[in-house]
């Protein structure tokens, strides 16, 4: 009995399901028409594929040392040359894409689980919890992200996971604000009241009725956050606080290039290209998503405000 009633209310909350489906289809069409965005998606998919197929793509064992090849410049044998220990740079570059993906997953997991969960709770519960959590989020946003991430990562101890916990904490506030705003704005809606009246738990209300409302801004936010994570991973690994050698990442490779910058300056190029292309692809993808998901019904000044806000968010 209770179950059937609840279904109807679920349907009522998505009363415009048909209209939504049409809108989604239009959004997909608009996204596909954006050539830059499609190219970026292809690049990102290729990157994922590269990470999974790394053993097949790599021409050498990434950790195999051969001092005879020390600082060898690019050749048929070593496509991108070899480093101080004669390790093949192409293979190291390929294997490093795994670290980048892992870093993205870890960082986003921390940022989203902290930001979204606490945001929904703060917005729905209000009161002291909301006041306190909002202050904390404001405090994090008032600090320069890179310095805060550096401090947290360093004191937790060097390592990829710690670095990503740090960057996750720094990136949580935007997600927190989104989730909190959404929870707050619907908390007094009739359909939420109806859910409560028939005995839905707060968890179910937040999960099934509040969260879907903000799925598209969250998705966009997440794409931009992924770009920040790539920068942060590279920066922290470069400084020796992220991925630890001999394990390789693009940041670690840049550090190796930096340490032998006088002997083999060309070593800087390959990781630079990969890092920049990945960041470019993520931001282009994010822009495309935003245009297709939120393109309509927004005035120019609102879009401008969003640009300012996203500039504020993406600053590391």
């Amino acid at each position: 009995m209770r179950r059937r009633r609840e279904m109807t209310i679920d349907e009522a909350s998505g009363a415009t399901r048909e209209r939504r489906r049409l809108r989604e289809r239009r959004g997909v069409r608009q996204f596909v028409a954006n050539r830059a965005a499609v190219v970026s998606v292809c690049f990102l998919l290729a990157l994922v594929l590269l990470a999974f197929l790394a053993p097949l793509v790599a021409t050498h064992d990434p950790d195999e040392q051969n001092l005879l090849n020390k600082f060898q410049s690019p050749s048929a044998e070593h496509w991108l040359g070899a480093d101080l220990y004669g390790r093949d740079l192409f293979s190291r570059l390929v294997y490093s894409s795994r670290v980048t993906l892992l870093a993205m997953l870890q960082g986003l997991a921390v940022a989203s689980s902290l930001g979204i969960t606490l945001g929904l709770i703060a917005g729905y519960a209000g009161g002291v919890a909301d006041a306190l959590l909002s202050r904390v989020s404001d405090a994090i946003m008032a600090l320069p992200p890179m310095i805060l991430a550096l401090a947290i990562a360093g004191i937790l101890g060097a390592g990829l996971t710690n670095a990503m916990i740090a960057i996750g904490v720094v990136l949580a506030p935007p997600q927190f604000r989104l989730a909190r705003g959404a929870a707050q704005s619907v908390a007094s809606e009739t359909y939420i009241e109806a859910c409560r009246a028939i005995g839905c738990s707060p968890g179910r209300i937040l999960w099934r009725h509040v969260l879907p409302n903000i799925s598209s801004p969250l998705l966009i936010q997440t794409t931009f956050a992924a770009g920040v994570i790539v920068i942060a991973e590279a920066s922290l690994s470069f400084l020796g606080l992220g991925v630890q050698p001999p394990q390789s990442s693009w940041g670690v490779m840049l550090r190796a290039a930096f340490d032998s910058i006088y002997q083999a300056p060309w070593m800087v190029l390959a990781p630079t290209v990969m890092i920049s292309l990945t960041i470019l692809a993520l931001s282009t993808f994010g822009d495309g998503l935003r245009d297709s998901l939120e393109g309509r019904g927004r005035t120019r000044s609102k879009r401008r405000r969003e640009r300012v806000e996203s500039a504020a968010r993406s600053s590391v």
Partner: peptide, 9 residues
């Protein structure tokens, strides 16, 4: 798309 330290390098 180029992080500051990468451009610096």
């Amino acid at each position: 798309s180029v992080p500051p330290f990468v451009l610096g390098l």
